[in-house]
Design a protein around this nucleic acid. Sequence first.
DNA 1: ATAACGTATCAGCCTATGGTGATGTCAGTA
DNA 2: TACTGACATCACCATAGGCTGATACGTTAT
Lengths: 96, 96
Amino acid sequence: MLRVLADPLRARIVTLLAEEALCTCHLVEETGARQTNVSNHLRVLRHAGLVEAEPSGRFTYYRLRPDALDAVAVWLGDLAATARAVQGEGRRRPCT
Amino acid sequence: MLRVLADPLRARIVTLLAEEALCTCHLVEETGARQTNVSNHLRVLRHAGLVEAEPSGRFTYYRLRPDALDAVAVWLGDLAATARAVQGEGRRRPCT
DNA sequence: ATAACGTATCAGCCTATGGTGATGTCAGTA
DNA sequence: TACTGACATCACCATAGGCTGATACGTTAT
């Protein structure tokens, strides 16, 4: 999942889709990437459940799925929280 | 930053360090990876500001920096939030 | 002083994966 | 029906980046 978000072009697509639903042609002009490239990345995002496709005539609108993003946001937040808690205790495993 | 977290071994190291400060030898046995490999990944994590090194004698303890994780957690959370808000409005950019 | 140990660095290999071009498919249109 | 335009799929290429072995460095122990 993080691996999916890690690609710069995919990250750009995700931020664009966060602000409004867009179809492939919009994403192509916004990013400047080739249509083939955008389409490939959209497939990856779809399979990861980060994005939803809604065909409308010969266009295909894409919309971000907030739940997927929230999941990883929470996961990272919890990690940070437990790290903070543990570091207060200052326990340390001995070496060898 | 996301790219740094995207590697499976690095993600494992980060989750381990979230629970307690560990030195390289611990990370080596926990992950099963070679020492060289772990050390290389630790360097990447250091340069990304995700992790802090604290040399102690001939050992080096590593500790997670919660702020760095929080930053990306917040970023993803905001993205999800704005997506939710926008989708309520239902506005949609026209094609061509 | 020398040996042993924990760790870091570097160069090279090799695989995973992003970019591209050719092509297929389906919906609207003349 | 034939054509165009939006989008998807596939196969190929090239590069980025992870893994490894050799090695260097600093610290502790003998």
